[in-house]
Design a protein around this nucleic acid. Structure first.
Length: 365
DNA sequence: ATTCCACCGGAATAGCGGGATA
DNA sequence: TATCCCGCTATTCCGGTGGAAT
């Protein structure tokens, strides 16, 4: 399972301005405009995080008891997409690990590991204990016992917690001694509504840190850093970064996606710098790339559903959708299963459901 | 205003597949 | 090899919801 985070350049003692030795120009045929592709990746955690001092301070303060060998109450980071929640959680956890040598800081993306079993497995894996588990019968409770018995100290980051299907896992984790949690979600309110009352009441004592959208100047600052670390000098102009920041509407992930898309296109075409035309083309291109990746994750039945919905540009009623699907597929799934598929596709932002009850229609995005 | 019913989605259950166990 | 176990997906069952029809 290689979804973990690579060791990042500029991390710890390193200087972010020094290009990564392995990934630099040699690996890119012909063109050296992109000097380090990894700093353009949204999961990159810089050694020096900008514009989030207050949030970092608040999170550091909340986790302070860990420095004294105590246990910290949970911390909830919430706010819109691309506002730095994940980045700050990982950054702060790494700083903490510098201070506390025996601390483990496992990271779980609940979108990917959305069952109780997978979440616990990921935590154990991140702390280097999964190999011993693999040999034995491994019911979920065994994983939990293993975690409890591991006489270690953890700060677990649960990212995209609102995507978790079994909220009971939080109750499990609460009962592990020495385990502190950083919880990340888009909307705090809706998060609470999903939890068991026992967990919800304990979460009310949690520290809550809100992340606002970045302003245009903040976003430009972030982009400037990444361009300096990852692109050749003068590869992109400040006014181009401003336009990217503008298009991203406060979402750093989107902004970086646009910049990366423009840079790649420039390399493909053999340019040594990003042109205005490429910037214009990059916004839809970045969106299209995300969509393409999401569509690839669908199984054949889901793809068929998606195709039908996309072919009906004015939207399609559920009845017609089910009928069209059953018509075109060898061994159709039940309608209940289709509804689960449709829900998943809504989550991926591939389709949207308009209206409620009998007036509902589905359309592609 | 009331009834109707297409649709949604929660919960329980069945079946499958793969790894462990005897 | 046969059997058991468990997580995961799909299915079955069903109560709730809110436009549409009356």
């Amino acid at each position: 399972m290689g979804v973990g985070f690579p060791e990042l350049p500029g991390h710890g003692s390193g200087n972010p301005e020094i290009p990564h030795p392995i990934l630099s120009r040699a690996s890119l045929q012909g063109c050296c405009m992109i000097t380090d592709a990894r700093v353009l990746d949204p999961t990159f955690v810089p050694a020096d995080v900008k514009h989030r001092d207050a949030e970092i301070d608040a999170l550091t303060a909340a986790l302070d008891p860990i420095l004294r060998g105590e246990y910290a109450d949970p911390v909830i980071l919430h706010g819109p997409a691309g506002t730095g929640k994940t980045c700050i959680a990982r950054y702060t956890a790494d700083r903490l690990r510098d201070e506390v040598p025996d601390l483990d800081t496992p990271y779980v993306n609940c979108w990917e590991d959305h069952t109780r079993f997978k979440t616990l497995y990921r935590i154990l894996e991140d702390t280097g204990q999964s190999l011993t588990i693999h040999r034995q019968s491994t019911p979920t409770d065994d994983l939990l016992d293993r975690l409890r018995d591991a006489d270690a100290r953890f700060v677990v980051v649960l990212d995209e917690l609102d995507q978790h299907e079994d909220t009971g896992v939080l109750y499990d984790l609460y009962r592990v001694r020495g385990l502190s949690m950083v919880l990340i979600a888009n909307r705090e309110r809706e998060l609470f509504a999903r939890f068991d009352e026992r967990v919800a009441s304990r979460l009310r004592t949690a520290t809550s840190i809100h992340f606002d959208r970045y302003g245009v100047t903040e976003l430009v600052g972030i982009l400037e850093d990444r361009a300096r670390w990852g692109l050749a000098e003068n590869a992109v102009a400040t006014d181009q970064l401003e336009r990217i920041a503008d298009a991203a509407a406060g979402d750093a992930r989107t902004a970086l996606g646009i910049l990366r898309s423009a840079a790649r296109k420039a390399v493909e075409r053999g340019h040594d710098r990003i042109t205005d035309e490429l910037v214009d083309a990059a916004e839809p291109a970045a969106k299209a790339e995300i969509q393409r990746k999401n569509i690839e994750k669908l199984n054949p039945d889901q793809q068929m559903l998606y195709d039908i919905i996309r072919d009906n540009e004015n939207g399609i009623a559920p009845r017609d959708l089910y009928a069209a699907y059953a018509d075109r597929v060898e061994d159709p799934k039940t309608e209940r299963t289709l509804r689960n598929y449709l829900q998943k596709m809504c989550h991926y932002n591939l389709i949207a459901a308009d209206g409620d009850g009998r007036s509902r229609t589905y359309r592609s995005l």
